[in-house]
Computed example of a mutant assay.
Amino acid sequence: MHDDKSRTSTPDTLPEVVIRYLTAHNARDTATAVSVFTGDAMVIDDGNTYEGTAAIADWLDRSATEFTYTTRLTDAWWSDATHCIATQRLEGDFPGGVVDLHYRFTLRDDLVERLVIEV
């Protein structure tokens, strides 16, 4: 649920760096996906924290091969000037088969400084 301060967005109004990440992640293009992060970036996914681009690259490589799935962007919005959220529906051969994940991006200098992925 969005609060009154957030503004609903559409994929074409997401920052270019977020679109580049989502596109690369969906294509399992680790090199491009990693290129959107700051050197000291942090990703939190499924209770695990990955700090720095080397750890993020390892995480992306692992997650790309763990399950087969498709994604569809279902919602996107800004919570403030440096934070945006993209919701993607994943359908695949993982437990449960369908899940809506919220990708919470913190941006710094036109790069992703922090990404939290949660249900």
Rank of each mutant, 00 (worst) to 15 (best):
T71I: 09
V17W: 05
G52C: 05
I85V: 15
K5F: 13
A41M: 05
D75P: 01
L22C: 12
D80W: 06
I44V: 12
V43F: 10
Y69M: 04
N26G: 15
F37Y: 14
S9H: 09
D93A: 11
H83E: 01
M1R: 08
T106I: 01
V34T: 10
F67L: 15
F94I: 02
V99I: 11
N48F: 06
F37E: 06
A33G: 07
T68P: 14
H102F: 00
D12Y: 09
G52N: 03
S63I: 09
F94P: 07
H102L: 00
E113Y: 06
A86E: 00
A86H: 01
R28T: 06
F67R: 15
V98P: 10
R114F: 10
L60D: 05
T8L: 14
F37L: 03
W59C: 02
S63Y: 09
I56G: 04
H25T: 14
A86P: 00
S9I: 01
A86V: 00
V98T: 14
T23N: 06
R72H: 13
L90F: 13
R7A: 11
R89E: 00
V18C: 03
A86F: 01
R114H: 13
V43H: 09
W78G: 09
D75Q: 05
P95G: 04
E51N: 15
A33I: 00
V112D: 11
D46Q: 13
F94T: 03
L73P: 02
R28L: 02
A76R: 11
T53E: 12
V43N: 10
L107S: 04
